[in-house]
């Protein structure tokens, strides 16, 4: 039976409320991090440097596409993909929690991708491994909820 295996443990989770990215937030200065960070890296967070307090946070699922590109050619290792290679979109997504996250954009129609469009987090297949398991990763797809449709682009 096909199993879903996370590409790397500890980066994302499929929770009852939906997929989330597993990150941290500094209890002193509220700077968000993905993936989880054991320490705060903000240069002005002097308190955090002395008394390190990081809280686990689950980020997502809503974000806004900052920009995208298409990986038209197969990337070099250690990237993995199903054969035959199919170009895919990658993007920078601004999450509501103040994080800009990299991820694949799950869509067949690249021409519809536009900066400022709402997207939502999903967990989907990256490739199928030699044992027939689906190796999954976090991705984003254009948000389809009607309420999102008229938000338009956010000005830079």
């Amino acid at each position: 039976m096909t199993q879903r295996i996370p590409v790397i443990e500890g980066l994302f989770a499929e929770l009852p409320e939906g997929p989330r990215l597993l990150g941290s937030r500094c209890a002193h200065c509220a700077t968000p991090y993905f993936p989880r960070s054991p320490v705060c890296h903000h240069p002005d967070c002097d308190a955090g440097r002395i008394e390190n307090r990081m809280e686990d946070v689950a980020f997502g699922p809503s974000g806004v596409l900052y920009s995208h590109a298409v990986q038209n050619y197969p990337p070099p290792p250690p990237a993995k993909f199903d054969e035959p290679y199919q170009p895919y979109a990658v993007g920078m997504i601004d999450l509501a929690e103040g994080l800009r996250v990299l991820g694949r954009i799950a869509t067949d129609d690249f021409s519809k991708l536009q900066g400022g469009m709402p997207v939502e987090l999903i967990v989907d297949r990256l490739y199928r491994d030699g044992d027939g398991n689906d190796v999954v990763t976090w991705q984003f797809r254009p948000a389809e909820a009607a309420g999102h449709r008229n938000q338009g682009r956010r000005k830079p």
């Binding site: 993936p35 590109a69 990986q71 290792p77």
Partner: peptide, 26 residues
């Protein structure tokens, strides 16, 4: 860099592509 490539597969030119695409829109 390993995480970026294994979990997403985003090459150097894809980063430039993202920046360039945003500029085209702006």
């Amino acid at each position: 860099e390993f995480l970026r490539q294994r979990c997403i597969g985003v090459s150097g030119p894809a980063f430039w592509g993202m920046l360039c695409r945003r500029r085209m829109e702006d």
